[in-house]
Amino acid sequence: MTNEIDEHDKGTMVIKVPEAVGVFETFDSFQKAFYDLRMVGFSRFDLSVLGSENALKEKFGAAYLSTKDIEDDPHVPRAAFVSEEAIGELEGMVVGGAFFIPSYIAMAAMAAAGATAAGTAAAVAIVGLPAAAIGVLLARRVQQHHKDYYADQIEKGGILLWVRVADERHEKLAIDILKGHSGKDVHVHDWSI
């Protein structure tokens, strides 16, 4: 199998490596398929999902695009899957960072001014707790955006998952996993992006 690359209009690069595609009606079945594909050796770089709504609008305008219309279109913007665990880690970093940075600044300022430990702790609490509350709100917004992203795809026909397959063995493996997790319209096209 050759790995020829074709340049298409507007910078789309199509590689002559087959790609399996499946459509999932629930986030849970999609995520399980993703994890199983990773467990059997597919790289995260071999897996892609539909790009953001903004990327789709930029590429196709405001036209309604159903899953069926775009699953085999090489010009569809793609993105890497972001797991629930990664979203959780991001939330932790947002909340922790929102608390830590202002608290550290307050602590350093109080210590430089020669404040007592009790005064420094009070300043940290006064500055850090409201900052942490803002961090919680930002983290919830990130989580809601993630949920809305997949809910919108389900509403338009399902969550698309593309899997680059290097050979017939990987092709069969990908198809079996996609179908095994209730993937619909599972098939392979002879190119990937």
Rank of each mutant, 00 (worst) to 15 (best):
A55D: 12
E91F: 02
E7V: 03
V40C: 02
Q31H: 07
E85H: 06
I126D: 00
K184R: 11
I126H: 00
F100Y: 12
I159P: 06
S103I: 00
K172G: 00
R164A: 06
G22E: 01
L129N: 00
A121V: 01
K16N: 15
V186F: 08
G114R: 05
I15G: 02
M1F: 12
Y149M: 08
A132E: 00
Y35L: 14
T12A: 05
V142K: 07
G96A: 01
V14S: 08
A115S: 13
A98I: 03
H181W: 10
E7M: 07
A111N: 09
H170D: 13
D148N: 04
E84H: 04
H170M: 12
M107S: 11
G51P: 07
E85V: 13
V136L: 02
G51R: 01
G61F: 05
V21F: 13
A106V: 07
V23P: 04
F100V: 04
T120W: 01
E155A: 15
A98D: 00
I15L: 10
V82G: 10
E91C: 13
E19L: 09
S52A: 01
L161C: 07
V163S: 03
Q31W: 03
A151Y: 06
D152S: 04
Q31D: 13
H75A: 08
A33L: 10
E91A: 11
L161Y: 10
I193S: 05
Y149L: 11
F42P: 02
D36C: 09
V165G: 05
K179E: 12
D73P: 04
I101R: 06
V82I: 14
S83Q: 02
I87S: 03
A62P: 12
H181I: 02
D72I: 12
M93T: 03
L129C: 04
R44N: 09
I134R: 07
V94F: 05
I15K: 13
G97K: 00
H8L: 15
E89F: 10
E19T: 04
V163A: 05
A79S: 15
I193V: 12
R164G: 07
K10C: 11
R44Q: 13
S192W: 02
Y150G: 06
Y150T: 09
V188N: 08
I154L: 10
H75Y: 13
N3P: 04
H146M: 06
E85Y: 11
D69E: 15
K57Q: 14
V94N: 02
A174Y: 12
I134T: 08
A33F: 09
T120S: 02
D36G: 08
S29E: 14
I134C: 04
D36K: 15
Y104S: 04
M110N: 09
Y104F: 09
G158N: 03
M93L: 14
V21P: 14
A117I: 08
G114S: 02
A33D: 07
L56G: 06
V95M: 03
S103G: 07
A121Q: 08
